[in-house]
Design a protein around this nucleic acid. Structure first.
Length: 436
RNA sequence: GCCCGGGUGGUGUAGUGGCCCAUCAUACGACCCUGUCACGGUCGUGACGCGGGUUCAAAUCCCGCCUCGGGCGCCA
């Protein structure tokens, strides 16, 4: 068995001999003639089996394969207007490379739908459907575009620990683990580490990596293990950080629009796909409240100091209809490590980037002054000593800096209009699912 | 964490007390078919999550368990 000369189905040349290898998508046996559709990464190719004119053993063995078996055919590629792709392969050799059971746990040909849990239990088969494969090819393109944009912004990619001794800000639930008998946790955010690295000589850093949240939520937009796209930059204020995230989001959409035509086609959204224009509206928290109240969608008017409920976010998203920022939040509803305005201690530099349907990003300018930072820990009821590894670096020249974290799955989900965030992760971790 | 709704052949479904030894599609098996492209045709195999209860009678009603999905809170 050798696949050195294997040709992808999309790359066969009429008039030449070729060896193709892939999965049996379907067998259509019409009696004297049969068609076998072979699928690979690039597409599908029809193999013609003429029973009277071909080697009996080849006919028999090739028509005996079950769907989704892996096969290889060698033969002449012929131009044929009656074939689905205008070419077909007339085989001389056949090999059953890896057989498949006849009963499949889901149908990759898409004739019968499967529910999400069934699909997630059988992801390998699920990704044989072009529209599912397309999601992950697009996800890869989004991450590639993000990396490229960060580099064009002079950022260095870093990797920080996911096993940590303490949480980031205390609030969210962490997954406890045992670290050689010592209590440890899965990190909920690279927040503290990326700040430490911005304050090193690297200055502008980014990280794309997993974050872990032990919240027992059960919604189509939450995961217990997610991928966070994080940025932190020195001598930046929150508005500079907003510029960067806006650039990333637009760059990701542009890259998908330019390089994933086939995938968008598979998702049936080639025509509907729109690259958002930059210059996302930047609403202050108070403007946001006013606009939400003006919609009349909520039973109760929001007042200053209220956090935005899911319902409120949706009403505002519908009203605005595009990505938008909410900034100038009341300090009390933003984390303590986000800096307040120097001339207004009641207002935080924290911001959120919203897609009309949900929150995508949260960020802000960080508190870089040692004393207010340590006070912040104390006010949160956290022991500053536990975070000494972090706070002490603020004693050795920590420049002003700002940054944000962007949920990669939410970016992909909102970009493609997926109904469930689990669609944007190969092997999602949620309240009910730990395997596969 | 609080609340709501589901679990029927491999897959997706119909069925809300007797019409159900359970519908349809697809898959699977057998046979027929020389241009299919969701190929077609004939026949066939295959299922009520688990345990208890109510009833003359339970897929259907009740209780418990298991399991899945969703809404809110919180967040990326």
């Amino acid at each position: 068995m050798s696949f050195e000369n294997r040709t992808y189905t999309a790359e066969v040349t009429p008039g030449e001999s070729a060896t193709i290898a892939g999965w049996v998508h379907e067998v259509r046996d019409l009696g004297g003639i049969a068609f076998l559709i072979v699928r690979d990464k690039t597409g599908k190719l029809q193999v013609k089996i003429e029973k009277d004119e071909m080697d009996e053993e080849l006919v028999e063995s090739s028509l005996d394969v079950a769907r989704e078996s892996v096969v290889s055919f060698t033969g002449d590629v012929k131009e044929e207007p009656r074939a689905p792709t205008d070419v077909e392969l007339v085989p001389e050799e056949f090999e059953l490379v890896a057989p498949a059971d006849t009963e499949l746990p889901l149908d990759p040909s898409g004739k019968v739908d499967a529910e999400l849990p069934t699909r997630l239990d059988n992801r390998t088969l699920d990704l044989r459907k072009p529209e599912v494969k397309a999601i992950f090819e697009i996800r890869a393109e989004v991450l590639r575009a993000a990396r490229e944009y960060f580099r064009s912004e002079g950022c260095t990619e870093i990797n920080t620990p996911k096993i940590v001794a303490t949480g980031t800000e205390g609030g969210t639930e962490l997954f406890p683990i045992s670290y050689f008998g010592e209590e440890a946790f899965m990190n909920q955010s690279p927040q503290l580490f990326k700040q430490l690295m911005a304050g090193s000589g690297l200055e502008r850093v980014f990280e794309i990596g997993p974050i872990f949240r032990a919240e027992e939520h059960n919604t189509p937009r939450h995961l217990n293990e997610a991928t966070s796209i994080d940025f932190e930059g020195t001598f930046c204020d929150h508005e500079d950080a907003m510029d960067v995230v806006e650039g990333i989001v637009v760059a990701a959409y542009e890259a998908v629009s330019e390089n994933c035509e086939e995938q968008l086609e598979a998702l049936d959204m080639a025509d509907a796909f729109e690259v958002p224009e930059g210059g996302f509206p930047r609403l202050t928290y108070e403007e946001a409240l006013d606009r939400i109240n003006a919609t009349g969608e909520l039973d109760e008017r929001l007042v200053y100091g209220d956090d935005l409920s899911t319902e409120a976010e949706r009403a505002l998203g519908e009203e605005i209809g595009s990505h938008y920022f909410i900034m100038d939040w009341p300090s009390e509803i933003k984390p303590f490590y986000i800096k307040d305005y120097d001339d207004d201690a009641e207002t935080s530099t924290g911001f959120d980037l919203m897609h009309p349907s949900m929150e995508l990003v949260s960020g802000g300018q960080r508190e870089h002054r040692y004393d207010p930072l340590v006070e912040g820990f104390e006010q949160q009821g956290l022991d500053p000593d536990e975070f000494e590894y972090y706070t002490k670096m603020f004693k050795y020249g920590m420049p002003p800096h700002a940054g944000w974290g962007l949920g990669a799955e939410r970016l992909v989900m909102t970009m493609l209009g997926l109904g469930n965030i689990r669609e944007a992760v190969l092997f999602p971790r949620d309240r009910q699912r730990l395997s596969p």
